[in-house]
Write a protein that binds this DNA or RNA. Sequence first.
DNA 1: CACTGTGTAGACAGGTCTGTATATTTGAGG
DNA 2: CCTCAAATATACAGACCTGTCTACACAGTG
Lengths: 195, 195
Amino acid sequence: MSKARANKSDTRQRIVETAERLFYAEGMRAVGIDRIIAEAEVAKMSLYNHFPSKDDLILAVLQYREEKFNGMFENLISRHVSKGMDRLGAFFAALKDWFESPGFRGCMFINARVELADAKHPASKFSACHKERFHQMLQTIIEESAGMNSAETVAPAISLLVEGAIVTAVMAQSSESADVAREAALALVTKTKRK
Amino acid sequence: MSKARANKSDTRQRIVETAERLFYAEGMRAVGIDRIIAEAEVAKMSLYNHFPSKDDLILAVLQYREEKFNGMFENLISRHVSKGMDRLGAFFAALKDWFESPGFRGCMFINARVELADAKHPASKFSACHKERFHQMLQTIIEESAGMNSAETVAPAISLLVEGAIVTAVMAQSSESADVAREAALALVTKTKRK
DNA sequence: CACTGTGTAGACAGGTCTGTATATTTGAGG
DNA sequence: CCTCAAATATACAGACCTGTCTACACAGTG
């Protein structure tokens, strides 16, 4: 009693959540297994029973991160939408919220791709796929503001603006790139519509 | 004789160039000192005589990288300019050339910032400064195509497009983001001029 | 010639890393 | 109550990492 032993397998979940937090904050190469099990309060063998290797854990962490990030981001967007903002404006407002959130250190999937270096690593491939899904989500939002046809032409450019804003927010340690991206995106949308 | 002993200190230069090549290709955490001295054909003590620690070497490598990159990029731009292209168009053509160059793995300064994680690390600070200088250089080019006044307003947006194109080129392993960025940049310039 | 500065070769210390092995404890279901 | 799956604690192997130390080779200069 009282030791609050892990019931069934929230152990796995605790490992993934702890690793996600540490990997995002300090990088996947910088954080070792011993550190993860210490902070997750889990035995090393428990980790290796759930994940054959650190690479497997990394992949699982990114999968978890995608779900968590999507949920968080949709949440931020709806909050702005419910205040009367259109969805594209709400997207950029959410982007800025994210940049200003404590512990912000850029896009974890970009970071993973950079840190792992190897494009063939499963986690690199997953990160590339995440970006495709993210840009698809953004395109859907753009369609509401720009219409189906013009969205197809401006969406790739706006995706670049967003990726650039993320990177620049990290490099310059400032969230103002979100505003620059929003203004440019709106300019592109109105220009395309007018055509 | 004949061993082709290092005359004076091209030793230091050989260390920096080797480290730059390895760091860019595989990451600064992934490449160890032993690997660098082996490929540079240099004794470990020679390295530690020139650089007190690996962090110092990293900083020196980034300084070297900036000069090398600037030279390479200016070179690519002039080649396109001499074929009759305007400087802004030449910039994006050079960007695409870079993306398609063998061994391309994104912006080394972004990569350094991501890998080091610590914003206060000297190499992180240097990387942030490099980005400022790079964007300033880009703004100067934009001024030629858009005029002084409108350049000030569009340059930050075009910088985001360029950063986004770099990241996307890595993630998608494709150079087409350079074309998307160019088209969007031209659209922003013409729209701003018209106003 | 002797001195000095630079590079070389290689061993080594001390830490950290991933992953394994072992032996034990715990809790839930039949 | 007994069994079995899952978690625990801990030690350990073997690799790799940064950085130091020592002893030596060589070239140029006074």
